[in-house]
């Protein structure tokens, strides 16, 4: 491929890619469906919610930074197991993870999201948006919850979710890529594998377009997270420097 036309891939190759990426996803998804069921979708009680709400802003920010960082470590492991990712140059591996790891965390969030109650698994139980009030980012939190809800409404299978996560991570239009063409080829193959799975699962034609729309929503969520972090850091530079996880600081330039 010269980058303009999709690469030629055999059905067997697509099936293999689906298998590898689905396996990588299941091995690194942090919580298995069975584990989630055992958590019995238990919600925080009102006094527990209030305890989170009365935490100092910087304490709640630190807690969320820790939880995001834990989730990102699993995404890094997912990336490493995607066929072709480790063959990219180190610069591009770093560029893709810096730009895409939080996006994949947001994609994966639909697995731990209860649409009916508008709650997400956090710190041991299911939490509504009000739990995160102390962060002082109500608008961002509402958008993250809305995004998770809209992802849930697509009812993606684990295979579909795995391939969409890989597609998001291998975005060839990220700034500072050195071997853009190689990333592009890999992303095109993943897109073909995603289309293949959607067809095999007899999903309606519109699902792929709906997923494409999610890509821009994810970028918006991540740039808003960066803005909120900058605003927080301007007020609490020492907290970020001394109390935030080093990986979080590396990824988000804190």
């Amino acid at each position: 491929s010269n980058g303009d036309s999709p690469p030629t891939v055999s059905m067997a190759e697509l099936d293999h890619l689906v298998q590898i990426i689905s396996k990588s996803h299941l091995e690194t998804c942090q919580y298995l469906r069975e584990e989630l069921q055992q958590m019995s979708w238990q919600n925080f009680l009102q006094d527990e919610v209030e305890r989170y709400q009365s935490k100092p802003r910087e304490v709640m920010w630190q807690l969320c930074a820790v939880k995001i960082t834990e989730a990102i470590q699993y995404v890094v492991e997912f990336a490493k197991r995607i066929d072709g990712f480790m063959d990219l140059c180190q610069n591009d591996q770093i560029v893709l993870l810096k730009a895409g790891s939080l996006e994949v965390v947001f994609v994966r969030m639909c697995r731990v999201f209860d649409s009916q109650n508008n709650t997400v698994y956090f710190d041991g139980k299911f939490a509504g948006p009000d739990v995160f009030k102390a962060l002082g980012c109500d608008d961002l939190i509402t958008s993250v919850f809305d995004f998770a809800k809209s992802m849930c409404s697509l009812h993606l299978t684990e295979d579909e979710l795995a391939l969409f996560s890989a597609f998001v991570l291998l975005s060839a239009d990220r700034s500072w890529l050195q071997e853009k063409l190689q990333v592009e080829k890999l992303q095109q193959k993943i897109q073909l594998a995603l289309q293949h799975v959607l067809q095999k699962n007899q999903r309606e034609d519109g699902v792929l377009n709906k997923l494409r729309c999610k890509v821009s929503a994810l970028r918006s969520l991540c740039s808003r997270h960066t803005e909120k972090l900058s605003a927080f850091r301007a007020i609490y530079p020492d907290i970020v420097r001394t109390h935030f996880p080093p990986l979080y600081k590396e990824l988000f330039g804190a």
């Binding site: 470590q73 890094v76 492991e77 490493k80 770093i94 810096k98 990986l247 590396e250």
Partner: peptide, 20 residues
């Protein structure tokens, strides 16, 4: 490299938090 020390480590490690 220094700027992304931990990411480099995670990428190079064969054992990871996931395996542990």
């Amino acid at each position: 490299k220094e700027k992304h020390k931990i990411l480099h480590q995670l990428l190079q490690n064969s054992t990871s938090p996931v395996d542990l």
